[in-house]
Design a protein around this nucleic acid. Sequence first.
DNA 1: TTAATTGCGGAACGAATCATTCCGTTCCGA
DNA 2: TCGGAACGGAATGATTCGTTCCGCAATTAA
Lengths: 214, 214
Amino acid sequence: MTSPTSGRARQAARNDVTILAAAKEVFLADKRAPVAAVAERAGVGISALYRRYAGKEDLLRKLCHDGLLTFIEQAERASAERDDWAAFETFVLGVVEADVHSLTVHLAGTFTPTEEMSADAVRADELATALFERARPRMRAEVVPADLTMLLEMCAAVRVPDPARTTSLRRRYLAMLLDGLRAGVSLPGPAPTRAELSWRWMPRPDDPGDGSGG
Amino acid sequence: MTSPTSGRARQAARNDVTILAAAKEVFLADKRAPVAAVAERAGVGISALYRRYAGKEDLLRKLCHDGLLTFIEQAERASAERDDWAAFETFVLGVVEADVHSLTVHLAGTFTPTEEMSADAVRADELATALFERARPRMRAEVVPADLTMLLEMCAAVRVPDPARTTSLRRRYLAMLLDGLRAGVSLPGPAPTRAELSWRWMPRPDDPGDGSGG
DNA sequence: TTAATTGCGGAACGAATCATTCCGTTCCGA
DNA sequence: TCGGAACGGAATGATTCGTTCCGCAATTAA
């Protein structure tokens, strides 16, 4: 089992990424989607999926963790930029374009997290906060890092059937949000606290959607 | 049956509004909620609900239509304001505070609409577009009335467990969005078209939530 | 007072959905 | 030719949920 460059094992290795990509697409569109939908999208049988993951929760966990790692990667890459605001902008744009928010926040609560995941979540939060703080001098008064979570949430809510257009429209409204982040001075009501946003990471009996299922 | 001011009929009349209010709360939190959850929230049995509505779809339709009428009411009320921008602002704020968006757009597609509903939807669109056009001179270049739908969508995505805080936070981010609506000049990508947003009003096999079900 | 009616609570029913398992098949590698 | 890894997809069992049905209680009409 050195390098599966041919035949069976090769196809299996290909299925690894195919299934993961299919799962990402399917659960982004509807986080309550059945497992069978993932298999169908990937063009494989259900066996191929259950051979790789112990169950649905396992797959969801893997997906969420991957999203978290992408988030961290975007943050680290953006941190290299010299200009404070440009770094922040690059980071947020990267997260939005990778459609990572739905993979992390929206899938949270559908499984019990790993210790490693929790640690990565903390690190992700630290990186994002650092980027936010760097750019904060150029923002309006009274904004806080917790606002970033909500801005990403709002971008994730932009969704049309065509994925390409969804990305394009998200860029449009992200530009508006970033302008709004810098304009004016006074904002109504108190800023969100960390406690108010942490409920997403706790297991929930019901599923407030989405109002919107993905 | 002149005026039910006592006993039985009185309680029944009270249940009319209780059930409707419960349904609004429940389906706002999760549009896929079971009918039994509505009855439980209202503190009545399932019979009390089915006596009033032919089925779940009937209840959803009533709820959505009520939301549409509230939307129209907010638009008409705001239209009376002299200042063009103030009228627009009052209107949007009214819609957001009434949490009407989830009742209309998010519930659309879960039932077959009435002719009257379709007519009201057209009227709602006309009123909203008129308010938008009045305020447009004070907005950045290249924004279109269809943007309003998306802005409302983004506000509806702001949600925390506490309803009062949800309203407060929505006001906060609405202020940012409105500032973003006026700032700058150039926006990336083409504006949304009506066709891209009309899919919400067509019956769908699946349910893209949000990824989030509200 | 009595009988009819209205409104209702909640168990029961049946359909649908889904995660998971299981069995037979295919095909690569030796 | 053979062992077994990988797989397709039907079968299964549990759960959820919309709807119906039956019996009871309270009110009202006679």
